[in-house]
Write a protein that binds this DNA or RNA. Structure first.
Lengths: 65, 65
DNA sequence: TCTTAATGACAACTATATTTTACATTTAGT
DNA sequence: ACTAAATGTAAAATATAGTTGTCATTAAGA
């Protein structure tokens, strides 16, 4: 996976730290960090939770044409 | 997770069996079956692969408002 | 400076996605 | 009725998502 810049942008637009987002979706900071760095392949349920907290959709953060 | 009817519909619209879709995205038939039944929580990369084969987007199959 | 919050990164562990093997049921064609 | 393809489902094994603990670096404020 490539770096997920869109996630980082959406998170900072909501003025949330990695830790705060992690708490909101009930995972660890390391998991959020790894997703932003593009080091891995989260589950769809986690992606959905993240999107809901950030007020965006799956396509906004995880779909590439 | 709930049953994923939209996936089943999109698959049948492309006239693919579970086995054919599984082959196309390089997983087993059982994995496709489990996703359609809603028994679990696939990874985002697998969701993306499935969407691309079926000519739809993540929101089409996996996003609920 | 000094301190604290935020982040990158990694190793070892645990939880769970996915595979493999296998059996049963349903559906469509002959 | 028979056959083959498609599907539901389950148990045991394997691969990997996500945790826990830890250390280093950077940026901002006092």
């Amino acid at each position: 996976m490539a770096k997920n810049i869109r996630l980082k942008v959406a998170r900072t637009q909501m003025d949330l730290s990695q830790q705060q987002l992690a708490d909101a979706v009930d995972v660890t900071r390391q998991t959020i960090s790894a997703i932003e760095r593009g080091d891995y392949n989260p589950t769809i349920n986690l992606c959905i939770k993240i999107c809901k907290v950030l007020g965006v959709t799956l396509n906004d953060l995880f779909w590439e044409e």
